[in-house]
Design a protein around this nucleic acid. Structure first.
Lengths: 355, 355
DNA sequence: GTGAAAGCGCTAACAA
DNA sequence: TTGTTAGCGCTTTCAC
């Protein structure tokens, strides 16, 4: 049972005008007399008239709503992003339709289909790690739907892209550990096929190079399930700490891996930072209360959401199809905690010979 | 520039039927011949037809979308709730419009207005702590819009309500601390006017009573800004630890206060749990990695989201206005960490004399 | 300056 | 079984 809202017709009938006059008065057209305008406005105000957005949408062929696809709503990083998106959307009179792919290609497909049929005006997407085939996105784009990719982007698709300086993130993390006397820094990332992982790894390697060290492939591990599968991380850690030549530091390239690695160290009784230093990407709050407090690479997630939303709305509202696509690189921040602290003495055996 | 999607008219024209026949065939009415049906379905499939939901909404006078108001999207608790809401909504073909009040009454008002004009079919609300005047909600309800209140509910409004057993939460926390030999347990809550805070406090008092202890009002502190204002918490803590008769435990009644209290202890060099034990409500992930690991009362947030969404959708889809409102009490879980550990020796001076 | 009429895409009486 | 028609609430020509 729903209350029937007042319509333009109702106002017209009550005031003895035609619907079109009322419509014009309400939208402040300048070919209407001041008196009529006031009359209509006052009455509309009095009866608390609000236009029916559905009817407006049908007429205007746009819905003022934008779709958002993230992996998981309940993650620090993505919820911060959504926060940013929501605020910009609302400032601009858009609402957002939030969906989560939970990292699955299947879900992403069905969500995309759902969104496509929902007459959204545009879409903000962080691509699921599983996704290889991109035609569900191409479909959308062929229909003329503007898409902005953020965070986990795909290189081969047109569209604005908003991401952090992933390479810089990897560099900053590794550089910091190197500065703290670490010489055998393990890198744990999710799938190397992920653009962001590849870039973070590049940054890591660049830092090593600057210190005249060659990357040791046995120290580079990938956990394609991104810490969702704890055993995968456990296995990687065990391989790392199995031989004689153990790492003296770990750098993790995603939020989940950072937490998983920390948990693993605890389970394996590896003292942080005494036995092994730890630094990694994380957007969790309060990691300074961890034991030990975490050294993290933090992404400006809210800003990423805001920037993405702004770009999307700009595309939506531009008259002509957007010709060249922007690529926004946002900075990353290194937050230093105890977990990456330099050990007091540096034994010679800890130093990797320069090659 | 948008691609024009195919319409029923297009199909009708191509196939030589009338639009109504096509519409009926697509919606599988049984007064259409099998052959026509197949013809239409096949063609629709071929050209990838999807109905325009806006037009359907205009016709059906419902939008299959529901509004959600939370304090803050980027909080563990609320993002978990949204997660639950989203999953149920999608299972039922609804989409959700997420908004955040950021705890402000002003925001809540404007959001409510926005949602009201967005032709949502129903609304899920966690009321902002600031809110005293409720007529923006009453307005919605008078229009016949179903509302389900969750988490921060208001007692005096009709509507389904979904909440945890707040009293039990307070009880469990205090009881646990008492069992661990704590005798002077401070309670830090946000505003005592908040229903959930009042109930949690009641539970706390009940636990004391069971241990034949009278609540000491000097140990009960309120921080109406709920930890957002760190100084407020600091002041409360200082009052607590100022005199001779210090507390030996702290129980905090919200996520933010728990974190703030922990941070305060660190700043005040109060050793947890050596000097003071700590337990409190928290839905943060990974509090077991804290230093010390936290003892928390955890709410089934995802479930709360799911239950609320289900109730709302049920109301939306019920033919007659819902007569009596449900009130769902969800359980809480105590997760024991190091922060509430019993001190090894219990000095006589630590024991509060029974009164 | 105002009104009549058509149409956005769809559905549902009513006719045939 | 199918087609015709009207209408959801709004905007927008085109007349007057």
């Amino acid at each position: 049972m729903r209350f029937e809202a007042a319509t333009i017709k109702d106002i017209a009938r009550s005031l003895g005008f035609s619907p079109s006059t009322v419509s014009r008065a309400l939208r402040n057209c300048n070919d209407i007399s001041e008196t009529t305008k006031q009359l209509v406005l006052d009455y509309a105000n009095k009866i608390n008239y609000t236009p029916n957005p559905i009817a407006v949408s049908l007429k205007a062929k746009r819905s003022r709503s934008i779709g958002v696809i993230v992996h998981e709503i309940a993650s620090s990083f993505f919820s911060q992003i959504i926060n940013g998106i929501e605020s910009v959307a609302r400032e601009n009179g858009y609402n957002i339709i939030i969906t989560q792919s939970l990292g699955s290609y299947e879900n992403e497909m069905s969500i995309t289909r759902m969104l496509a049929s929902r007459s959204i005006d545009g879409c903000l997407i962080s691509v699921a790690p599983e996704t290889a085939d991109l035609c569900h996105f191409t479909n959308l784009q062929e229909r003329g739907l503007p898409i902005v990719f953020f965070d986990r982007i795909v290189e081969d698709l047109p569209g604005h892209k908003v991401l952090i300086d992933n390479k810089l993130g990897g560099y900053k993390g590794a550089h910091h550990l190197l500065k703290n006397q670490c010489r055998r820094i393990a890198f744990i990332g999710d799938s190397p096929l992920q653009y962001i992982t590849a870039m973070r790894l590049e940054g890591y390697k660049k830092a090593l190079e600057e210190h005249h060290m060659a990357p040791d492939e046995s120290l580079i591990k990938f956990c394609p399930h991104d810490g969702a599968d704890y055993y995968e991380v456990e296995a990687a850690m065990q391989e790392l700490f199995d031989g004689d030549h153990k790492p003296d530091a770990i750098f993790t390239s995603t939020d989940k891996l950072t937490i998983a690695a920390m948990r693993c160290c605890r389970d394996m009784k590896l003292n942080i930072p005494g036995t092994v230093a730890l630094a990694g990407f994380s957007n969790m709050e309060n990691t300074d209360l961890f034991c030990p407090s975490l050294t993290v690479i933090r992404q400006p997630a809210i800003q990423m959401g805001r920037v993405s939303a702004r770009l999307l709305i700009k595309s939506i509202e531009s008259k002509r199809p957007v010709a060249d696509y922007e690529r926004q690189l946002l900075p990353v921040e290194l937050r230093i905690g105890e977990s990456s602290k330099a050990r007091v003495t540096v034994l010679p055996s800890d130093v990797l010979p320069l090659r």
